[in-house]
Design a protein around this nucleic acid. Structure first.
Length: 279
DNA sequence: ACGCCCGCCTGTAAGC
DNA sequence: TGCTTACAGGCGGGCG
């Protein structure tokens, strides 16, 4: 499912394609994907005719900054895709909810079968210029947790279990179920450890694991699972799934010690880990 | 403060 | 083979 590496892959592909381009028209199908807006009209009027000045990301949110100072925010939720079509004549996939036509040809399509994702336009905060709707997000897992001491400060301040904390977007933004499990395995730490129980050495391992896993995943263009929900701008799958060491490997031998990988349900979510390598 | 559940959704696949 | 059911989970809200 789209987490930080998948959104970052889309961001890196989208930036050279969209920056400097004018959005010549906007089409919206249905109201669910744009539910933050009172009407389709509002989004259409604020985006049409604007030029994209940069493409950013915060956590799992994709940010298209416009020359009006507004930001067009895209969140993929569980099943969202941003697809680029070179020609507007290419047939649109099912569940295409928002279409941005680019001046000079081609269009961007927001496609989302399960409709957990959304698209909205936001005005900048008067003080810091950020997106107020995203002010609740914590440190970006890739850009802002730059030293293990940053992570130590976050972990020590809470008394929650490690995995729910890693997935709490208000604390660290960008990690979901897949990468949390992969990071915890790489760090050799169990998901249900209390966050303030880690030794400095374990915090350093966790920090190194987080940075390394995220960079590796971006290098392999993200994880497309069996359902193939995640696709990049061109509709191609990412290949990081083949490098998962615990996620969706229940019963398979641990790649480090051969112990069967265990699956547990925690807070209604599947958690995969090696009972021997993770302590 | 924390843990856990629900509702929102659709496509896929396992089970009967 | 065809139907029903479970499952996938990001996120916000609510409850104990």
């Amino acid at each position: 499912m789209p987490e930080l590496p998948e959104v970052e892959t889309i961001r890196r592909d989208l930036a050279p394609l969209a920056v400097g381009r004018r959005i010549s028209s906007v089409q919206v199908r249905g109201t669910r994907s744009i539910r933050r807006h009172a009407s389709e009209r509002e989004l259409i009027d604020r985006v049409t005719g604007r030029t994209v000045t940069s493409v950013g990301r915060k956590g799992k949110y994709l940010l298209l900054r416009l020359d009006s100072a507004d930001t067009l925010v895209v969140h993929l939720g569980m099943s969202g895709q941003v697809l680029h079509a070179r020609s507007r004549l290419e047939p649109r996939p099912r569940h295409t909810h928002v279409v941005l036509a680019l001046a000079g040809g081609g269009e961007l399509r927001f496609v989302d079968p399960r409709t957990f994702g959304e698209v909205f336009v936001a005005a900048p905060d008067a003080r810091d210029g950020g997106v107020p709707e995203l002010a609740h997000l914590g440190f970006d897992a890739l850009e802002q947790v730059t030293s293990w001491r940053d992570l130590a400060a976050v972990l020590g301040g809470r008394r929650t279990k490690l995995k729910p904390l890693l997935m709490d977007q208000r604390v660290i933004a960008g990690l979901g179920n897949i990468y949390s499990d992969e990071i915890l395995f790489a760090a050799g730490v169990r998901h249900d450890r209390r966050s303030d129980s880690l030794s400095p050495q374990e915090v350093r391992r966790l920090h190194r694991a987080m940075t390394r896993i995220l960079h590796d995943a971006i290098e392999h263009r993200g994880s497309s699972l069996a359902d193939q929900q995640y696709r990049d701008l061109n509709g191609d799958a990412g290949s990081f799934r083949a490098r998962h060491r615990v996620y969706a490997r229940e019963g398979a031998p641990c790649l480090r010690c051969r112990t069967p990988i265990v699956r547990e349900n925690a807070a209604g979510r599947s958690t995969f880990f090696c009972p021997r390598c993770q302590t």
